[in-house]
């Protein structure tokens, strides 16, 4: 710092009138976009992290699809690629669940390192940090879906009921992802450091997918376990998208299993109704 620091900086915003509602809205959009771009830049500058998040689902497709899949039964189907057709919608949803870990550790890192404090000491719209994060996560989920769809097509998975239904299925997947993002935001605000996120997320995420219809149809599980699996929110989305993609494995005669399409909307909305207010409350508590 040999040179003197000039104060020829742009003047601070006018001291007089408070910004109008329109200006506030414009700032909110603008700030959220800057935050979104920030998170997307992370993907570009640090692709390793994303690659890890991609490798895991692809590994599941290969290991379950070819190694365990040969011994897996799919109710009502018998062809060679039936299990892989059954598996792919499960892996789509599983990937959304694991994405929660990236959300939570990103937020925890920002809180722990004082980056959030810096944002909070600036005239930034306060909600932009989280709106930017969830938008970036959504874009990232689209990227993940693209890679997984290509991977699925390569192993013999496809959609059978037209592009409209297929897009609707993708919509349901993204809806679940938004709900999971808010769960991740809350987790990130609660844990004291980012390392703890992985310790919490990964050991809980796998059993959560195992006790659902992601890998095995619940009607093939012991009675009580099958019931738990059917009520697992992940199962609703998986069941609904299997239906929309026309993939095999639809089954179960319970109420939840028969109403998978409705529940695939209800569960995420319920999660949002819980996690959005809790996250806001937790964020405001940073000022305590």
């Amino acid at each position: 710092m040999s040179t003197a620091i000039s104060t020829s900086a742009p003047a601070s915003s006018p001291a007089t009138a408070a910004p109008s509602a329109l200006t506030r809205l414009r700032w909110w959009v603008c700030d959220s976009w800057v935050m979104t771009k920030r998170n997307m830049t992370h993907v570009v500058r640090e692709p390793e992290e994303v690659v890890i998040y991609f490798t895991l689902p692809i590994m599941f497709v290969l290991v379950f699809g070819y190694v365990f899949g040969s011994g897996m039964a799919v109710p009502g189907a018998s062809s060679d690629s039936a299990y892989r057709e059954f598996l792919l919608p499960g892996v789509f949803v599983m990937t959304m669940l694991y994405g929660l870990g990236a959300t939570a550790s990103g937020i925890a890192f920002d809180v722990g390192r004082g980056v959030v404090d810096r944002f909070r000491s600036m005239p930034v719209t306060r909600s932009a940090l989280v709106t930017g994060r969830s938008l970036a996560d959504l874009l990232r989920a689209l990227l993940e879906m693209t890679v997984l769809v290509v991977c699925g097509l390569l192993v013999g998975w496809q959609w059978h009921r037209g592009i409209g239904n297929a897009l609707l299925a993708v919509g349901l997947i993204l809806l679940l992802r938004i709900a999971l993002t808010w769960m991740g935001i809350l987790l990130g605000l609660i844990v004291p450091n980012p390392d703890l996120v992985a310790v919490i997320v990964f050991p809980t995420a796998f059993p959560l997918t195992a006790v659902s219809n992601v890998f095995v149809a619940p009607e093939l599980m012991p009675g009580w376990l099958g019931a738990v699996s059917e009520w697992n929110p992940l199962s609703a989305t998986v069941g609904a998208i299997r239906e929309l993609f026309g993939n095999p494995g639809l089954g179960g005669s319970s109420w939840v299993a028969e109403h998978a399409l409705v529940m695939a909307v209800v569960w995420p909305l319920l999660m949002l109704a819980i996690f959005v207010p809790l996250s806001v409350w937790r964020y405001q508590r940073l000022s305590r």
């Binding site: 601070s12 980056v115 810096r118 000491s121």
Partner: peptide, 19 residues
């Protein structure tokens, strides 16, 4: 209005480490 007129440098270097 205060936030538009202050700067804060805390005990940690609060910058984005990836950028």
């Amino acid at each position: 209005r205060v936030r538009a007129r202050i700067g804060l440098t805390g005990q940690y270097a609060a910058v984005d480490e990836v950028l």
